[in-house]
Design a protein around this nucleic acid. Structure first.
Length: 566
DNA sequence: AAGTTTAGCGCC
DNA sequence: AAAAGGCGCTAAACTT
């Protein structure tokens, strides 16, 4: 039987029920009742049949198994899959799409911290002797019917317009959920001594209180240059006032405006902003909070972005600045295999649109150079900005000026993003290759659009509404490409995970950043891992697009520390 | 005092 | 050099 359903045991706190189900989700009549402490062993026993585990929430169910040393090969994360299916235009006729918001919608409620039993009694007694022993059930605590939800989801896929694509998307999303927990469990190797040395070099020794010496010195310089002995550059209003007092007509204190100043305060001020940013975002306090036992363990949130990209919760793992990447160091005898997909979004667009000319440009490792070699634009830089302008919707500047050339050269690719933009401007939903649909604009947006198109609308209102429509069009334009790129990346990573299981020495994923992966690997098998990374990229392209002429080029490095990659 | 918003900047 | 989509996070400023 392909599925094993895992649900809470209603009669036993912490216990679960395990139940087989057929491939259309029909559950077996009898369930095995398992106590919490026996769960890892039970899961390991079932795992020998390689089932797909069906549960409400990987982030809740998987970590205890990992702590017990048990990994599973595949799962179906009902909450993540529900979100995709409920919104997908490919499954718009399903029961899921029509249902009102229910217990499977929205973010997972916070787990209540496990209270000490005697403390709980004490609190109950102190607060209200008559209070019931258990908290009242609120909407978030409505019990989830796993078997029913799985059946509804499988039916929605089966009756959808693209069952094959949705099946792939749900499997990839669920595998991503497993990987997110595994990466957090294993952690990214982090050398605090290197990190501390970097900080000390840039900022001065860690202060006991107040600013590090280097920052304090820069503050003095800034105050002298502006002749304002008490100016505090940490205060935006104070700094803005100070710059205006010095005769500059600045609108903000952003580094873009400061960079344009012709004044000796410019350099120390820019350096101060950069270094104080490093200190507050990734300084010693961050290190104390996030690095334990030489590992960085951020909480990844698969599907945390509407486009399907991941987000993180705490730690800022997706914004690790270049300045501290040297602190990401492989253990002794190990290596980091770092790979990123080169120009992923243009390649994805070429494959989605079936644009043969653009695919041809991507036949070489550097797609932008391919655009230059084809004679479309003069320089690699032009190619890059033109392409990004097409995908992001540039309306002004040099990027927009290159659009006509791009449109002539790659009509199918440009038509695809233009269609997505027009749909968004009309308030319509757009959908990625595998079936993740964009959110509909809210009712107020629609109402304004209608009102502005009515006769007698004020010209100013019409302009404002048109601008908002174009804003939304830029979002939907980008959504189809960014979202499909996210799907490719999930498939890439899922394929890589499966391949890594076959390699000796347990190389494991430790980082994922939109179009980049990092594997912590024994040095002896690092080249084998690099090969697996490449094979996985080829497989991802085939899984999504079949026999596409588009190459998904990678840059792969085997290094000891992250700053050496690429 | 505590919670919410804003400015700014890091990443892809 | 240039411009646009998606985020998270921090500290200061502002609100209650």
């Amino acid at each position: 039987m392909p599925y094993v359903l895992l649900t809470d045991d209603p009669d036993r706190a912490g216990g679960v029920l395990l139940r087989h189900a057929s491939d259309d989700g029909e559950p077996a009549l009898d369930a095995e009742r398992v106590a919490a402490r026996d769960l890892p062993a039970a899961v390991a026993r079932y795992e020998t049949d390689r089932p797909r585990w069906v549960w409400d929430d990987t982030a809740r169910r998987y970590p205890p198994l990992l702590r017990a040393g048990v990994r599973v090969e595949r799962c179906h994360d009902l909450r993540l899959c529900h979100a995709i299916l409920r919104g997908s235009a490919y499954a718009s006729g399903s029961d899921l799409a029509r249902a009102p918001r229910g217990p499977w919608d929205g973010r997972r409620p916070e787990e209540p911290p496990p209270a000490e039993p005697d403390l709980l009694d004490e609190l109950t007694l102190l607060d209200d002797p008559g209070a019931p022993a258990t908290a009242p059930v609120d909407a978030d605590d409505v019990p989830l019917d796993v078997a029913d939800e799985l059946a509804r989801q499988l039916a929605a896929v089966a009756r959808s317009t693209h069952p094959g694509r949705l099946r792939l998307l749900l499997a990839a999303e669920s595998t991503g959920a497993l990987i997110a927990q595994e990466m957090r469990h294993d952690g990214m190797p982090w050398d605090t001594a290197v990190h501390d040395a970097l900080l000390t070099d840039l900022l001065g020794p860690r202060p006991r209180g107040g600013r590090p010496a280097r920052l304090e010195g820069l503050v003095e310089q800034i105050r002298e240059h502006l002749v304002q002995p008490t100016l505090n550059p940490d205060s935006q209003p104070d700094l803005l006032r100070g710059l205006r007092l010095a005769g500059f007509a600045v609108q903000s204190t952003s580094k873009w405006e400061i960079r344009a100043l012709d004044h000796p305060v410019r350099e120390p001020l820019l350096e101060y902003k950069s270094l104080s940013r490093l200190l507050s975002a990734n300084g010693w306090a961050w290190m104390d909070t996030w690095i334990h036992d030489g590992r960085f363990r951020p909480e990844y949130v698969p599907g945390g972005v509407v486009s399907g990209r991941w987000a993180t919760n705490g730690g800022g793992a997706l914004q690790l600045p270049a300045a501290i990447r040297a602190a990401v160091r492989a253990d002794d005898g190990w290596r980091l295999v770092v790979a990123d997909a080169s120009q992923l979004e243009p390649r994805v667009l070429a494959a989605m649109s079936g644009d043969a000319a653009m695919a041809a440009a991507g036949r070489q490792a550097d797609l932008y150079q391919g655009v230059v070699d084809a004679g479309i634009v003069a320089t690699r830089s032009d190619a890059k900005y033109a392409m990004l302008g097409a995908i992001y919707g540039a309306t002004t500047g040099a990027s927009a000026a290159l659009m006509p050339q791009l449109t002539r050269a790659y009509p199918h690719a440009v038509a695809l993003v233009e269609a997505a933009a027009r749909a968004g401007e009309r308030g319509e939903v757009v959908t990625t290759w595998l079936g993740r649909s964009s959110p509909a604009p809210d009712a107020a947006w629609q109402a304004e659009l209608t009102a502005a198109s009515a006769e007698g609308a004020a010209a100013e209102d019409v302009r404002a509404v048109r601008r908002r429509a174009r804003d939304w069009g830029r979002f939907t334009r980008n959504f189809v490409v960014q979202g499909t790129a996210a799907e490719w990346a999930l498939c890439w990573m899922a394929s890589l995970r499966r391949r890594l299981r076959e390699v000796d020495g347990r190389p494991h994923l430790v980082f994922f950043l939109h179009d980049e992966v990092m594997v912590h690997s024994p040095a002896a098998v690092a080249d084998e891992v690099a090969e697996a990374v490449r094979a996985a990229a080829v497989e991802a392209g085939r899984l999504l697009f079949g026999a596409t002429p588009v190459d998904f080029a990678l840059t792969v490095s085997v290094v000891e520390s992250y700053d050496r990659a690429k």
